[in-house]
Design a protein around this nucleic acid. Structure first.
Lengths: 142, 142
DNA sequence: TAAAAACCCTGTACCAACTACAGAGTCAAG
DNA sequence: CTTGACTCTGTAGTTGGTACAGGGTTTTTA
């Protein structure tokens, strides 16, 4: 099948497929006389694997590691487990960060419910609360 | 003060300050005879505002909007509220997405606890489960 | 006072993971 | 046989910076 067909079947933009090839995640397919790419079932499966991993928010580097394990049927899948464990950690950390963030944002938002002028807006004032590191006492502002 | 001083007081890399200037978030400061940037207290305050917003994960575009409101003391702070509301929505959506993701990842991880060969690894097999859009019946795979 | 260290300048390239062209060639349908 | 849909390569843009290279300037130290 040609690249457009593959793109449809994997719900992936054509440019992205070419990008994965450049990144060596997808092997170079055969070419027709007119230099068109021609793909096999294998390519589709590999592309779906990549897209599934991307949907799980794995980075291309992580996916590359998984593909290497996959390409090496005798290798222990140890490495794949490790990639996944680290990624789970990463996602959970990010969730906690975002939860703290949302809390801060809601608190900030609560400071202004009316349509005040900007100069009176509790939100803009709160964000502006100074956070500067003081100058060392020996120096002075020019 | 010179850029290095400003950088220290706002705990912001020098390059980032110059970048904000290029992005027109910070106004161009005066220059010395040797073409060095010289900043005032105002610049520090504005930079701290930007950094505080970044810590809240607001995009530079969102920050630009907030700064415009701030620069216009007579404007209603309406727009600032709206930016914040949308951002809170955005963060909360992302939290839910990541929670679903973490769940999927944990489930996937549970499929392989031993050090099997890659070809037997439940994880790699699970990710590979086909997801392709079928070809229309009229067409065929070349 | 002179050399060395620390600072500053512009401009460019790089990161991830694509996306969006431009400009040219190829193929299928009517 | 022309029109439109597809494909090709190559390059640039996205976000929010970071990291030089290759200069000039200022401050510190010997």
């Amino acid at each position: 099948m040609k690249i457009g067909q593959l793109a449809k079947r994997a719900r992936t933009p054509v440019e992205t497929i070419r990008y994965y090839e450049r990144e060596a995640l997808l092997p170079e397919p055969q070419r027709s006389a007119a230099n068109y790419r021609h793909y096999q079932q294998q390519h589709l499966e590999r592309l779906l694997f990549i897209r599934q991993c991307r949907a799980l928010d794995l980075s291309l580097a992580e996916i590359r590691t998984l593909l290497e394990v996959k390409d090496n049927p005798n290798a222990a899948c140890d490495t794949a487990n490790q990639v996944l464990d680290e990624h789970i950690q990463h996602v959970e950390t990010r969730i906690h960060e975002l939860q703290a963030l949302a809390q801060q944002l809601r608190q900030l938002r609560s400071k202004c419910h009316s349509e005040k002028a900007a100069s009176d807006c509790g939100i803009l004032q709160s964000i502006s609360k100074s956070n500067a590191t003081p100058m060392p006492s020996s120096s002075h502002i020019k």
